[in-house]
Design a binder for these strands. Structure first.
Length: 504
RNA sequence: GGCUCGGUAGCUCAGUGGUAGAGCAGGGGACUCAUAAGCCCUUGGCCGUAGGUUCAAGUCCUACCCGAGCCA
């Protein structure tokens, strides 16, 4: 049985509309999945987190049942991911029976094993954040994170014996210093573990929009329910062979605010079930606007559909991967996007494509000349391996910089050999050789950049007269194939037309 | 209050105790296939501050300042 590459995003809480931060996480996962698929089988999971009081409240405010509310919002998320060319293999919703079934099975398993017990849960509760607070944490009697009023709750809930797993967690962290990235998050989690852990409440009785506990007595706490999506989607306890083809996950992407759930609670739960911890949890930073976190309460959320329309989804994908450091916050602006688009995509890459295909059209009727040696490309023969390994290691900036070495080299080759002069002087074989190498170079660029800019690179692939089904295949095979003499190319409009921003 | 990560060119960031770097932006030049693009050359640095260790510190140590976060 071949192990597959398994990448997950967080499931997105469906109390509101998606913003650019959700696009970011999901696009990163998509690039990983697309890259992994060039090597072997891969599975990319995303989805929505639909339980909890906040969803119930939002639905009530809209005059809908919680399920109606979720059903109405899910298509918006799917449309957004489609708009950004995201190729998830599965989209899980925590209200689906397949998920609820697994959640209940997990609870039963933990109860059988004695990993949960019934205890008293009480404290000041913030409905908005769905969090209990100690008296000492309140700020002027209000929620310390959102400033809203809190209410006193006291209920009998099930607790997971998280404290019992602290030594094993610490041991796991020490034995796998790279399993949580970036390092800052790893260090913080180790510090938490060294302070010791409290047991974790996994059920609620104060509201009912959640997975019912088997045997009654409330619902599963939304956070516990949500974590289990990563294994319910791939058939835990339902199809063991399928489950173990994917688990443990290769990469689980999370926002830094939920690193704790994914690197402390999550592995402990998995161990309680007899399963392994994920291989890597990567906590990414936030996309901010002028340094401010994006949020509907701040009124600074930019419509991600509008951004895709304005700049092109692939340009946005490129921008986020090239410019944003994955492990820390990133302040974006339309000026930055336009600048990256114009300099890298328009001037360097797009113009290279256009001038090459234009000369091929002018001098050779758009037909790829006879195959010949490609000494320049041979000098860059290590680029595909470097790009692939950087992408799979989540070093997107490195991957793109390595790719641009090839872009620059091809632009230089044109200046150096001056095909317009070769043409005028009738040096046909030299002109053929140069044009052939340029075409083959473009083909490799389309291959290398396809995970990042799938739509634009598919377009380039078509203009090169290549069969689209080959794009996305094994890079080693693709490199060996080379473009065939006689292939008919098309010039077309610029791939990345320059963007001039309106002065504000 | 304790802790973590960061502070390097106008911007985004690399940097292994051994002559401070890249890309973009800025300035200049030659060219014409091309999206006024590309190519060549180039300006630009108290490496947050102050001490210390060392033959030698952006790099190691201490304190402090600023930013982001975690914990109490």
């Amino acid at each position: 049985m071949q192990r597959a590459y398994y990448v997950t995003t967080p499931i997105y809480y469906i109390s509101g509309n998606p913003h650019i931060g959700h696009v970011y996480t999901t696009v990163v996962a998509d690039v990983l999945a697309r890259t992994a698929r060039t090597v072997g089988p891969a599975f990319f999971l995303t989805g929505t987190d639909e339980h909890g009081q906040k969803v119930a409240n939002a639905a009530a405010a809209a005059g809908m049942s919680p399920q109606e509310w979720c059903d109405a919002l899910v298509p918006r998320w799917k449309l957004l991911f489609d708009a950004y060319h995201v190729t998830y293999d599965d989209f899980i919703r925590t209200t689906q029976p397949r998920h609820e079934h697994v959640v209940q099975r997990v609870f039963e398993r933990l109860r059988e094993r004695g990993d949960v017990y019934l205890g008293k849960y009480q404290g000041w509760y913030c409905v908005y954040d769905e969090t209990f607070w100690l008296e000492s944490k309140l700020v002027e009697g209000r929620c310390p994170t959102c400033g809203r009023d809190v209410q006193w709750l006291s209920e009998d809930d099930w607790f997971f014996r998280l404290s019992m797993y602290a030594p094993r967690l610490l041991e796991h962290f020490r034995a796998h210093p790279d399993w949580v990235r970036p390092k800052s998050v790893y260090n913080e989690m180790v510090a938490l573990l060294e302070e010791g852990l409290e047991d974790f409440s996994i059920s609620r009785t104060n509201f009912d929009w959640g997975v019912p506990l088997p045997g009654g007595g409330g619902v599963v706490y939304v956070w516990f329910d949500a974590l289990l999506n990563y294994i319910s989607a791939i058939g835990w306890s339902v199809d063991d062979e399928r489950f173990h083809r994917y688990w443990p996950a290769s990469v689980q992407l999370v926002g830094k605010e939920i690193a704790r759930f994914h690197t402390i609670i999550w592995p402990a739960v998995l161990w309680a079930l007899g399963e392994a911890a994920p291989e890597l949890v990567f906590a990414h930073g936030w996309i901010t606007v002028e340094g401010q976190k994006i949020g509907k309460s701040l009124g600074n959320a930019v419509d991600p559909f509008a951004l895709a329309h304005q700049f092109g989804a692939d340009s946005l994908r490129y921008f986020l991967l090239r410019e944003a450091p994955l492990g820390s916050d990133f302040s974006y602006s339309e000026e930055k996007i336009a600048q990256r688009h114009n300099s890298d995509l328009g001037n360097d890459l797009g113009n290279l494509v256009h001038r090459t295909l234009s000369m091929l059209q002018r001098y050779r009727d758009g037909i790829v000349p006879p195959a010949c040696a490609t000494p320049l490309l041979d000098r860059f023969s290590d680029v595909p391996a470097r790009v692939r390994s950087a992408l799979l290691d989540l070093l997107f900036r490195d991957a793109l910089e390595a790719t641009w070495e090839l872009v620059t080299a091809l632009n230089r080759a044109i200046e150096e050999h001056k095909p317009w002069a070769l043409y005028k002087e009738g040096r046909a074989s030299e002109l053929d050789a140069l044009l052939y190498e340029l075409c083959e170079g473009l083909r490799r660029l389309a291959m290398l950049l396809h995970p990042v800019m799938p739509e634009r690179m598919a377009q380039l692939w078509r203009r090169l007269g290549l069969e689209e089904r080959h794009l996305g295949g094994d890079w080693d095979v693709l490199v060996d194939e080379r473009i065939a003499a006689g292939t008919r190319t098309t010039l077309g409009e610029p791939l990345f037309p320059r963007i001039e921003l309106e002065p504000t």
